[in-house]
Design a protein around this nucleic acid. Sequence first.
DNA 1: GCTATAGTTGGTGTG
DNA 2: CCACACCAACTATAG
Length: 626
Amino acid sequence: MAKPRVIYWFRTDLRLHDSPALQAALDLEPEVLWPIFTWDPHYVYKSRVGVNRWQFLLDCQNDLSQSITKLNKKSKLFVLREGPQTLFPKLFKAWKPTHLVFEKDTDAYGRFRDEAITKAAKAAGVQVIIQPGRTLWDSDDIVKQHGGKPTMSITQLQAAGKKQGPVAKPIPAPESLPDPGDMPVDFEQDPPETKPDFNANYRSEKDTGYKDIAGPHGDFAIETLEELGFPPATTPHRGGETIALQALDKLIKNADYTATFQKPKTSPAQFSPQSTTLLSPFFHFGALSVRLFYWRVHQVVSSYGKGASSPPESLIGQVLFRDMYFAAQAALGQSFSQTATNPCCRFIPWHLPSKRDPKTGFTTGEYHIDKEEPEVWFQRWKYGVTGFPWIDALMRQLKEEGWIHHLGRHSVACFLTRGGCYVDWERGAEVFEEWLIDHEPACNIGNWQWLACVAFFTQYYRCYSPVSFGQKWDKNGDLIRRWIPELKKVSAKYIYEPWKMPLPDQKEAGVRVTGDGLSDPQKGTYPKPMFDFSERRGICMSAMKKAYAVGLYGNDEKVLDGSWRSLFPSPDEAEVMGEYESDFGENADNGDDGSQEEANNETSRNKRGAKSNGAESKPKKQKIEL
DNA sequence: GCTATAGTTGGTGTG
DNA sequence: CCACACCAACTATAG
């Protein structure tokens, strides 16, 4: 029998160490092995991928390619520029592989894509081998162990993991690789769907990425940012398995840090070096195996003895959360990424809600502007000109470097949603999707749901202050000074609240606090705060209280057909009823909670109807009712 | 079925 | 500097 000819399809596993899928390919003892990467229009045009994450991906691809070449001079990472659904059927004919091997992807689109590829392979008589490898445990196994339900708490994940058994031990990197086979691409290229282009704002230059399947020189070279029409990246963070392994070694050497790590005690204000490991982008691209990390940290912790931290605060705890979000996504599929149709996501009448395809129920990437003010707030949040220096510094760091500390993410996410702007968490998640170099769909969605108190977390009365939270970590405001040079000379007394600075102090610091930061910002100025935070905090909190009492979830018919409006009284009526007078000494709910301003004033509204009516129906405290 | 408690990481004020 | 109570109050889980 002829020896196997294997296509190894790299995707989010850009590494050689501890790759169960690559090991499975090599276990076939193939005659030839093609290590390939395919471009996917879904990633290039239909996902939000900022220039910094592209750079990180490039780093990972280049490093992997070099590592492959070290094992076999004839081989490298061969990049093919065409969507996998159309490319593979042609490759199967042209290259005549016997096997296609890849790491399992449990993302919603990944499953859809891989199902199509698997079908095409079967039709072509090509055997498909899929191995899990992105997470500690196979996310589908975790779901099974959890009774087919999404894991919505860390204890649920831990229980399911315990049932599933120990995390797999890491597999060493291969010591050699087979030669690649011939790679004819004498077939027509199916052009990508480029419109709409979610990343159009980056493509200032000409986009030539998809011109030829084998790249501009016909050598399957790794892409450059120029070919994509992208400007240079601004992030200082570099990718690749080589530096990931070095970073891991360095971490492990510091036994005290590794064994006693407590996430809530790491500072979101610390930079160069940051207070956490910054390994997340390597996990995302698979440049570092999360199981290798797990076992090496485990070794340090178990030999450390007394004083070691434990989950959820510990380093191990951090990757457990990652598995929890992956398993939640694995169970819920695409509806995990949005409120509508999602049975585990609370419905809140946020501002700027997503538009949906009426046929599928899924969001389109566009959103409704229910009111002008929150749209301005959202833009000011996104571009770091809210007038709250702590928020603005973090957002500017995020945009330029593609990474901010986890607690910094908490702070800005709370501010945009339940703790300030009352803007839909899906808007914030989209910005993070675009800008984060470590953007992991499951974790990003899960964490936004957490912070917005729509899933995973419920204590909406715990609200991050854009002033005191930063001050707790960074009295002098060094992070602010680093990212907002306009405020560099402002005294520590005013650095978190420059609007309180008297004019003489402004003069001395060389900054004027004026304007909205968006329209024609003057040099030497910093914007005024876009609202009174404590007032907004009170409004948001009472609106959250109301929405919790109504108790709708994303899959409720009332959410999907718009009749949820009848459950939320019009703002004027609410004030007259005096139901949710703020307990914070501020105005009562003044209608800033979402599109409910559009709510009809139907008089026959059943006041006792304010409870869940969907599949999730359960008794609720009805404190809100009179 | 009930109650008590804990839950990745809040803010403020007091001692 | 820290510890702690209180704020106002949700829900899953353990017992």
